[in-house]
């Protein structure tokens, strides 16, 4: 069987591969893989486009300067990598309402898009408050044995599991 056309790989192969990418990030770029600061920077760039250079005065954007950096390129790469993967495996398809969502909330596209938007707002806000996301804390930070990252990883899943059980679990 050609591994490039098989849709799902063993989670252990995928996990080890992601671990190796983490090494490469450290080794070649002196960077830890993470995604959520790219959102803060993009948001700053969008705001700068609308409101001009005043945005630079915001204290948060002095810490996270709104510009394209290594992590931003990484996030862009994720889109391309997932596109290549799904085209090779044939799993690329337009998905508007995922199955598990539909089981709980029905097939309304508007409802799903609104849910995704609200979920995204909470994720974006929470990630910046916690100082990272599932990759920055959950994989990179935990691999460095950072105390705060293990704590964040725990609470991402506590919040996620409780919410999922309430909204999709049929309780």
């Amino acid at each position: 069987m050609n591994p490039f056309s098989s849709e799902l790989w063993s989670p252990y192969v995928v996990g080890a591969g992601i671990g190796v990418l983490l090494w490469l990030g450290f080794l070649l770029s002196n960077k830890a893989i993470g995604c959520s600061t790219a959102y803060a920077r993009t948001s700053g760039m969008a705001e700068k486009f609308v409101r001009g250079d005043k945005v630079k005065e915001k204290p948060y954007y002095k810490k996270f300067i709104p510009k394209i950096d290594w992590e931003w390129m990484l996030v862009l790469g994720i889109v391309v990598g997932a596109l290549i993967s799904s085209l090779l495996s044939g799993s690329f398809r337009i998905e508007r309402v995922p199955q598990v969502w539909e089981n709980s909330f029905g097939s309304s596209q508007i409802l799903r898009f609104a849910g995704a938007l609200i979920g995204g707002i909470l994720l974006g806000f929470g990630a910046r408050m916690a100082g990272g996301c599932t990759s920055g804390h959950g994989i990179s930070g935990t691999s460095q044995l950072s105390l705060g990252s293990w704590l964040a990883f725990l609470f991402f899943f506590i919040g996620g599991i409780l919410t999922a059980v309430i909204i999709y679990g049929g309780i």
Partner: peptide
């Protein structure tokens, strides 16, 4: 922040990295 993230994680069903990946898969 972690708990707020978790609530959003469940509702969106994706996280900051995997959501961009999901965009790539359609």
């Amino acid at each position: 922040g972690g708990l707020i993230f978790g609530v959003g994680f469940a509702i969106l069903g994706l996280c900051p990295g995997t959501a961009t990946g999901a965009m790539g898969t359609g």
